[in-house]
Design a binder for these strands. Structure first.
Lengths: 218, 218
DNA sequence: TAGTTTTGTTAGACTACCCTAACTTTATAT
DNA sequence: ATATAAAGTTAGGGTAGTCTAACAAAACTA
């Protein structure tokens, strides 16, 4: 069985090399930054994970998950998203509170627990942030989605997920009047810095390029 | 914040020095045995916990919890029993399956989670094994109960809790036809070894002294 | 292409938790 | 009351995961 730390490294690699991130491999420093450890620390773990055949890695080269590593990572993601759904749906946690606790719960080991939790929640497809929950076989359907910054001026779209799950970002999202399934109309966009004016429920707001990059819509 | 390991030591001390155990202090070897570590290991931790003022301890002396240590231990026990209740009531876990998973869940840190979980469960008073769940203030009412081995021949009683929570014991209990609230009649007891004949729902069984010592009744 | 910056690696050290082996103190039993 | 047994402690060592400091390789840049 993997340690919590190993699981966290695999999960970080999964997120850094996903379709969403538009990359299939990453580097030591980037991984270290994602996990809030020093590159030297990440380097040690890379050797260990390579030894366990969970990642593809050669000295001074890029890192990617093997099939086995990806399987393990997806299992952690699955647990994370099921717990988030539980916290949100059953325990009245808010959008921005679920992530932190799910970071702990995702490491609980008990196949029966996850199986039963999923059943209890009614086999949900999406977590509270709009992300797809992988099924028990580790399959996750990819969503045809783009970022708010890719939507053209004058068009309307619907919020389906957020990229960043930090509490500060989510609180900001709520403040702008946005939630899952919110309808967003693009009023205008500044060429200069990408600042975008949007309209949500008749209320207009200005949001930054960075903000728009972190909102997924269809 | 305490580590999972520290929490486990405090919890073990709580159980070893409870009313149930009829003792208010314990020794290094006993503690080590309860945690499945060597005495040398427990000794290191005792020094650490004393330093944190969570236990009363002097070299070559007995160990007991301070008020602060007891508070922490009770919080862990509270979480453990609430999770057991959740698993049993909401996720269709059986009597003998809940303990192991709760051993992991009890270390999740989130005051809101426990608060909401308790509310979700309807502020239960007892866990699936019949043990009292401490309230949010850390108060736990003690139960007027005795062991089955203390009941006199010819008398009847009701099962309110089990002492041992191991899967093997609980499966044995179920096999004899017992569960929470079962009515038990004492048919006879051997002077020689304490073997007792009981009747549950019209079915007679012979149980050992050790078995009877681990059944709490009123 | 040569210098500089970025990225990645190695060496050595620290903490938490665990171990074994040797030792000391306390308790028990005749 | 002393020998033996039981309980408890200390010293020294191991692994996982983290760090800093120094170094090596790769990638930029001018």
């Amino acid at each position: 069985m993997l340690s919590q730390t190993e699981e966290n490294y695999l999960k970080a690699l999964f997120h850094l090399t996903s379709e969403t991130a538009n990359k299939s491999e990453t580097g030591t420093n980037e991984l270290a930054a994602a996990l809030n450890v020093k590159p030297a620390t990440a380097n040690d773990m890379l050797k260990k994970l390579k030894e366990k055949k969970l990642i593809n890695y050669e000295k001074y080269g890029k890192v990617s998950l093997t099939a086995a590593g990806r399987r393990q990572a997806i299992e952690v993601v699955r647990k994370h998203r099921l717990w988030e759904t539980f916290l949100y749906e059953k325990l009245q946690f808010s959008w921005d509170e679920v992530h932190e606790v799910a970071e702990q719960l995702e490491h609980i080991y008990s196949p029966k627990l996850i199986e039963q939790l999923e059943k209890f929640l009614g086999y949900p497809e999406f977590d509270p942030h709009g992300d797809v929950i992988p099924n028990a076989k580790g399959e996750l359907k990819l969503q045809a989605r783009k970022t708010l910054s890719q939507v053209m001026v004058g068009k309307s779209c619907k919020l389906v997920a957020v990229k960043d799950n930090s509490a500060s970002f989510l609180q900001y999202v709520v403040k702008v009047g946005l939630g899952l399934s919110s309808k967003i109309k693009l009023i205008s966009r500044q060429e200069f810095d990408g600042t975008t004016e949007i309209e949500v429920n008749g209320k207009k707001s200005m949001v930054s390029q960075k903000f728009a990059d972190n909102i997924f819509v269809v």
